[in-house]
C-alpha cells in the first residue's frame, strides 16, 4: 500500500552526484591545469618533506590534544547531567548545547578578548604581579587548543550524554552495593558501557579540530599553521591546485584514520571488559 516510488530519490541522487561526488573525485584526478596523477605525486612529496610533515604533525597533535581535553571535560558534564535529579539539569544541558548554534567566529573572537596583549588574562597576571609583562598567549598552541576545545566540547557532551543516559543507573547501584567505590564504579561500569558514545565523541571532535579553519587562523596566526590554513593558502592565495588537492586528501585520510582507530580501540576494550 505505502510503496513509495523510487523516483522520489532521483533529485537527491542527481544533486549528490553532480554537486558533491563528481566534483570531489575530479578534484583528486583532474584539478585545472594539472595532469592526472600529479595530485598523488604531490601527496607523496608532502608525506616526506619536513615542512609539510610539521604541519601534518601539528594538525594531528593539536587535534588529538583537543579531543582528549574534550573527553576529559565533556564526559564528567554528561555523566553529572545524566545522573542528576535536579530540575535545573535540563537548563544546564541546554546551556551546553546552545554554543553549537552560535557562530564559530563569534565564539573564537572571545579568546582574542581574553588572551590578547591587552586581554583580561594578561591584565590579571600583571595586575597580580605574577609577571612584569603579560606573557604571549595569543598565537600559541595553548590558544589554539583552548579555542578548539570551546568549539567542540558541546559535541563531546551530547555524544557522551546520550551514551551515559542509556546505562541503567541500577547497575551503578548494584556495583556500589557489592562494595565498589564510586570511582571504581565509574571506571569499570559506566565508562566501558558508554564506549560507543566516547567513540562518536572522539570522531566528531577530532574531525572538527583537524579541519577547523577559524581557530588556527584567528588564534594561531602564522606561527601555528595547520592543514586547514594551508589548504586555503594553496587554493585561494597561491593557486597551487595540485598541493591544494593533495592537502585535502591528507586531511580527509587523517580524519578517517583517527575515526577508524578509535572504533577499533573501543571494540578491543569492550571485549576485555
Amino acid at each position: 500500500m505505502s510503496r513509495k516510488p523510487a523516483w522520489l530519490l532521483l533529485p537527491g541522487l542527481v544533486f549528490i552526484l553532480l554537486g558533491f561526488a563528481i566534483p570531489s573525485v575530479a578534484m583528486l584526478l583532474a584539478p585545472p591545469g594539472v595532469s592526472t596523477g600529479d595530485v598523488f605525486v604531490r601527496f607523496g612529496e608532502m608525506l616526506t618533506d619536513p615542512y609539510s610533515l610539521a604541519i601534518i604533525g601539528r594538525t594531528l597533535g593539536l587535534g588529538l590534544i583537543t579531543t582528549v581535553t574534550c573527553l576529559v571535560l565533556g564526559f564528567p558534564i554528561a555523566y553529572l547531567l545524566a545522573r542528576s535529579t535536579s530540575r535545573f539539569a535540563g537548563m544546564w544541558l541546554a546551556l551546553a548545547i546552545f554554543p553549537l548554534l552560535l557562530s564559530n567566529v563569534v565564539r573564537t573572537f572571545g579568546w582574542i578578548v581574553l588572551l590578547g596583549s591587552q586581554g583580561a588574562i594578561g591584565q590579571l597576571i600583571t595586575g597580580l604581579g605574577l609577571a612584569p609583562e603579560a606573557p604571549q598567549l595569543l598565537y600559541t598552541e595553548l590558544a589554539v587548543v583552548l579555542g578548539m576545545t570551546q568549539l567542540f566540547l558541546p559535541l563531546a557532551i551530547i555524544s557522551c550524554y546520550s551514551a551515559v543516559a542509556q546505562v541503567d543507573p541500577g547497575l551503578d547501584d548494584a556495583a556500589r552495593g557489592l562494595g565498589a567505590s564510586r570511582t571504581r564504579t565509574l571506571w569499570t561500569i559506566v565508562l566501558p558501557l558508554s564506549a560507543p558514545g566516547l567513540v562518536v565523541a572522539t570522531t566528531l571532535v577530532f574531525a572538527g579540530a583537524a579541519t577547523a579553519y577559524t581557530t588556527p587562523y584567528l588564534l594561531g596566526g602564522s606561527s601555528q599553521r595547520m592543514l586547514a590554513t594551508e589548504l586555503y593558502n594553496y587554493s585561494n592565495v597561491t593557486v597551487d591546485w595540485a598541493s591544494a588537492s593533495a592537502t585535502a586528501l591528507i586531511m580527509t585520510l587523517l580524519v578517517f584514520l583517527v575515526s577508524g582507530l578509535s572504533s577499533l580501540l573501543s571494540r578491543g576494550k569492550s571485549v576485555q571488559s
Binding site: P23, S24, A210, A248, T252
Partner: peptide, 18 residues
C-alpha cells in the same frame, strides 16, 4: 556522504570544479 568529507574539502572541490 557529504557529512563524512571535511567541509573545507567539499569547498575546495566545488571551487575548483564549479
Amino acid at each position: 556522504s557529504p557529512l563524512v568529507v571535511p567541509e573545507l574539502v567539499v569547498g575546495l572541490a566545488l571551487y575548483q570544479q564549479i
